[in-house]
Nucleic acid binder design. Structure first.
Lengths: 163, 163
DNA sequence: TTATATGCAAACGCTTTGCATCACG
DNA sequence: CGTGATGCAAAGCGTTTGCATATAA
């Protein structure tokens, strides 16, 4: 449920200290509501008057990426962003080009297709990456969620309605 | 066969001058044998003692990308590279993590799969990108093609079984 | 001669690093 | 205490831009 806790948990069980700053980053990541850049977090920190250094943010993101709690996306623009995601299984990302929201997408049939392509070309495939960009239901309907691109602030990730 | 000419052709028919420097870049791109970065071309230019400025290389690459003669790749390492490719149809890239060589891969069934994913999530998909990395037949056989030694050094370090 | 293209170097944005300090275990 | 984490500022890359010069049409 609480994504922030989940992240802190991940840090802890990997043997890293869950320091105040890392908790802070965890919180921002969890409530980002979509993709975000290091600059976004820095900016948000500045706006909320929390004292956190540039290097610390970068180091925290690197750490979380290493733990597969977040993953780096290459946006069509060429810039790098991160998204919170499920560390458990191999998946891809469907990213809203309107509000930045993102969904994890299971690999599914893709594995077979990838395999096939490898065979056809005689390559031994090692990794593959699929990135999907489009408009989420809200943005497609012209009602983008508050704080569009990088801000956003629903406290529970992308699971409206919970359970 | 002459890719260089094809590139020059593309420039010309788009109304751009096929200047000496652009021909030079075209030649390097055509004979790159795989992916390459702006730095690669610069380096190669320096080595071959041709006089071409950094900005010119970047501008030429930007131009060729705009004409869809080359395409930008995001290597797993996060760095940007370009590959020569067919401007005609929507396709993806299969890149050798050993020598950097690259094949165009038709979209094929992927379109359907992408569509399905969009529907399932209620997204209106705008673009998608599939990138495949692995070992080409030669590299897999331990006989990397000549002149490809350090080519994909930046994309190595992949975790084959990984996330 | 007029529009384009080029070189150079400075400017830029993003990310990393060195190092002294600080917090946690 | 000792290791790990942090802040700051400087350094490092890759890329872009301003501007004067050179070249193509």
């Amino acid at each position: 449920m609480d994504q922030t806790e989940r992240i802190i948990q991940a840090l802890d069980s990997a043997g890293y200290q869950a320091t105040a700053n890392r908790r802070l980053v965890a919180g921002m990541v969890a409530t980002s509501g979509g993709h975000f850049t290091a600059a976004d977090l820095l900016e948000r920190g500045r706006r909320e008057r929390v004292n956190i250094g540039r290097a610390t943010v970068f180091r925290a993101l690197e750490l979380l990426a290493e733990l597969h709690v977040i993953e780096r996306l290459d946006l069509p623009s060429g810039s790098h962003a991160y998204v919170l995601c499920d560390p458990a299984e191999h998946h891809h990302h469907l990213v809203c080009s309107g509000c930045g929201r993102s969904e994890d997408v299971a690999d599914g049939e893709l594995a077979r297709l990838v395999d096939e392509i490898g065979q056809r070309n005689g390559y031994r495939i090692e990794t593959h990456r699929l990135e999907l960009f489009g408009k989420c239901p809200d943005c497609a309907a012209g009602t983008p969620p508050n704080g569009a691109a990088s801000k956003a602030s629903s406290s529970a990730g992308q699971r409206p309605g919970g359970h």
